[in-house]
């Protein structure tokens, strides 16, 4: 099935973070202190979510050195560095920073030798001291970087939590996505984001949708203007983020298109390489999309819990047909 999200409605977001932003955001949690004499290194950007311990590099082996990763030096690396002769230390430090690493973190609150920091200053690279152990730092920093670098896209659509199921509405501008969301909110469901939904893949099969800071829970209702759902309906009407479970694709009713009548087959769409069910709902006068939405959500839950109404019904029908056929056979063969 064609999904509008699969085409031009989806806009990729590039992931990177500057050293300055990382420092400002995680400074407290990671207990970082900047050791450089200046702040020039804060302008560098981190483009790789992985961490690296440059043990081999410190011994002079720079082949396959992953220089785009954040370099983490622990007690072992430091013990090795202070054992080097001053010349060798200067040489290795210069070479390490010559590789244009994004930033260096030294754990356990250890202060690296001055020659090491001098080399970093020369190459405008930040060196941080961190009071945590390497293991704790690695855990916390990796979790944060995974979050920052998780694949994400912006989608033109509306995300509503209906009975705990995240329904992502897509469709042309003006088809009534916001109006459906408003109606759902009125019935006690919760708006996550209207118009621009940021989708992030947080696990191999989980996509989370959220709104933008600027738009918040504002929405435009044609003819009325911009309204604030949180102000109007209160805190119970909104949600900051929600796992997206079903895409509801709204389209204008077309005589020539065939719509799903049974629901035995599952139609699926792919968002950020995650497959989710898609339901295509044609809009026509007199159709209550709100109630249909609630049914889509409940039906999805039934399916998740192993109950497929369409399949159950179809089985029942087949059984009945089978029974009828055998009764008929019996009666027909029962001539005296």
């Amino acid at each position: 099935m064609q999904s509008p999200v699969g085409q031009s409605y989806i806009f990729a977001i590039m992931s990177e973070i500057s050293v300055e932003r990382l420092y400002a955001a995680r400074n407290q949690d990671l207990e970082l202190t900047l050791l450089n004499s200046g702040e020039a290194g804060l302008n560098k950007t981190i483009q790789n979510p992985e961490l690296h311990r440059p043990g081999m590099a410190l011994t002079g082996f720079f082949e396959r050195f992953p220089n785009r990763r954040i370099q983490v030096l622990g007690e072992t690396e430091m013990a090795f560095l202070i054992r080097l002769t001053p010349d060798r230390l200067a040489e290795i430090s210069a070479k390490l920073f010559d590789y244009d690493v994004p930033m260096v973190i030294v754990t356990k609150g250890i202060n690296p030798p001055q020659a090491f920091i001098d080399a970093a200053d020369k190459h405008k690279t930040s060196v941080f001291s961190c009071r945590l152990t390497t293991a704790v730092l690695t855990n916390r920093l990796s979790a944060y970087l995974d979050h920052i670098f998780a694949p994400s896209v912006n989608v033109h659509g509306t995300l509503v939590d209906v009975y705990g199921v995240g329904l992502l509405y897509t469709g042309k501008s003006g088809i009534g996505k916001s109006e459906v969301a408003l109606d759902l909110v009125e019935r006690g469901h919760r708006l996550v984001a209207d118009d621009v939904v940021k989708i992030t893949r947080t696990a191999p099969d989980v996509i989370i949708g959220s709104g933008s800071e600027l738009l918040g829970h504002h929405m435009e209702i044609r003819g009325v203007g911009i309204i604030d759902i949180e102000e109007l309906f209160g805190i119970r009407a909104i949600r900051m983020q929600k796992r997206i479970e079903v895409e509801v694709s709204l389209s204008y009713w077309s005589e020539t298109e065939d719509y799903e009548r049974l629901g035995v087959e599952d139609h699926r769409t792919t968002l950020l390489a995650v497959q989710i069910p898609i339901v295509s709902v044609p809009i026509s006068p007199g159709k209550n999309i709100t109630v249909i939405s609630e049914v889509i959500a409940m039906n999805h839950m039934l399916k998740v819990y192993g109950e497929n109404s369409a399949i159950e019904f179809s089985k029942k029908l087949s059984q009945k047909l089978g029974r009828q056929a055998s009764t008929k056979d019996y009666l027909e063969s029962d001539f005296e």
């Binding site: 031009s8 409605y9 806009f11 977001i13 590039m14 912006n154 033109h156 501008s173 003006g174 209207d194 118009d195 621009v196 933008s212 600027l214 738009l215 504002h218 929405m219 435009e220 911009i226």
Partner: peptide, 23 residues
């Protein structure tokens, strides 16, 4: 179909919320 892009943010040009989000 109309789209506006500023830096790496691309939005639907027919949606006012999207256009305002460009800031």
């Amino acid at each position: 179909e109309v789209f506006f892009t500023k830096a790496d943010l691309r939005v639907n040009g027919k949606s006012i919320m999207g256009v305002m989000m460009l800031a």
